[in-house]
């Protein structure tokens, strides 16, 4: 029995020692949790230097990943970057803290059109970080037709030339838009119709990809892909034969915002961080680095010419008038899952 005791003691000592090691630093710190490849990490160093606050940076892959990590507890985060519909859900479930806007004076830099959006109507919880659209990227050398509609992704002659997103919500949204329905529909019949469209399309699809789509399109391996506008900017930079189009039936307009979880340990420094990210020079650095669109006009002015004038990153108002923002699907998420499984598990 003595040996067990000594082993238990050893484990305890090891655990306590590692906890103490963590507490040893007197410097304040914040835990920032962001999408993968979604910041110029040099910006974090600048923040650390200017404010003397250490940034612990980690990354996630999807909104749902983020949600699950947050719900489980264990780790606490001070700044996170969920998208529109996820913010709506988190607010509904009381997972976010209200911001103290006096601590974020740089809010004034953000374009007015980004305030009062449906997912946070009173702008109590969220500060826009990046935004964009979903559209079709195509290779001009491989396509003769005019690309202006989602219908082209159902065109028989482009069999095995089409890449769709490996994402339930986005791909079902494409089918709904093609049919002329709202992508936030809660009508099962409309969703079933979208399912039928996707099953019809499946033999034509070469692959359903995530981030790998960038390599496929830049390498000229397929003619069409459904992508997010920021990724399109990056892809066109690497392969000028590519062109990005927002189809005439409309598309998804999305926003990734900075928010503070309700259980954040260092709200004060988190707000400083958000404020820092809204500074035009910092926002410009991030936008330039990742290719996504910043909501800060002064930052856009600081960007290199080709990005500043990019119709992909900064479409005219007319081009995005026909767009819709995702809403929280709530219970209907089960239907999405079923539809997606049925689409991808057929023969």
């Amino acid at each position: 029995m003595k040996k067990i005791k000594s082993i238990v003691l050893f484990v305890l000592v090891a655990v306590i020692a590692s906890m103490l090691a963590g507490c040893g630093e007197s410097k304040p710190s914040i835990n920032v949790f962001n999408w993968g490849d979604y910041i110029d990490e040099g910006v974090l160093k600048e923040f650390e230097k200017e404010y003397g606050v250490k940034v612990n940076y980690s990354m996630y892959a999807t909104n749902e990943d983020l949600y699950v990590k947050l719900k489980q507890g264990g780790e606490s985060f001070d700044v996170i970057f969920p998208s529109d519909y996820m913010i709506e859900r988190m607010v509904r479930e009381g997972m976010l803290a209200k911001l103290d806007k006096d601590n974020i004076p740089n809010l004034k830099n953000i374009d007015k059109s980004f305030f009062g959006l449906d997912y946070d109507p009173d702008d109590e919880y969220s500060v826009p970080y990046m935004w964009g659209t979903v559209g079709i990227i195509y290779n001009k050398t491989m396509v003769d037709d005019v690309v202006d509609s989602w219908d082209i992704l159902w065109e028989e002659k482009y069999k095995d030339q089409i890449i769709m997103l490996n994402s339930q919500r986005d791909t079902i949204a494409v089918a709904l838009l093609k049919l002329g329905y709202s992508m936030n529909t809660r009508n099962i019949d409309e969703l079933e119709e979208a399912k039928a469209e996707l099953i019809k399309q499946r033999p034509l699809v070469w692959a359903y990809q995530g981030d790998e789509v960038k390599d496929t399109m830049v390498g000229g391996e397929a003619a069409f892909a459904v992508v997010w506008s920021g990724d399109a900017v990056a892809m066109i930079r690497d392969n000028p034969d590519l062109e990005y189009v927002i189809p005439k039936e409309g598309t998804n307009l999305w926003f990734d915002d900075m928010v503070i979880p309700a259980n954040a340990k260092n709200k004060e420094d988190a707000e400083k961080f958000i404020d820092f990210m809204c500074r035009p020079d910092i926002a410009a650095k991030n936008a330039d680095y990742i290719g996504y669109s910043t909501p800060i006009p002064e930052a856009i002015d600081l960007l290199p010419e080709d990005m500043k004038n990019s119709k992909v990153a900064y479409p005219s108002e007319k081009e995005i008038e026909n767009t819709e923002i995702f809403r929280d699907p709530m219970d209907i998420v089960v239907e999405y899952d079923r539809i997606w499984t049925e689409v991808l598990s057929g023969e």
């Binding site: 749902e64 699950v68 490996n166 994402s167 339930q168 089960v334």
Partner: peptide
Amino acid sequence: SSLLGGNKYNLIGNLIEQQFRWTGD
């Protein structure tokens, strides 16, 4: 199956991953 099958042919592993990472069931 995800990388080389282009997610076109779900295997049971893909379905399990989907439940944990996206659907949350």
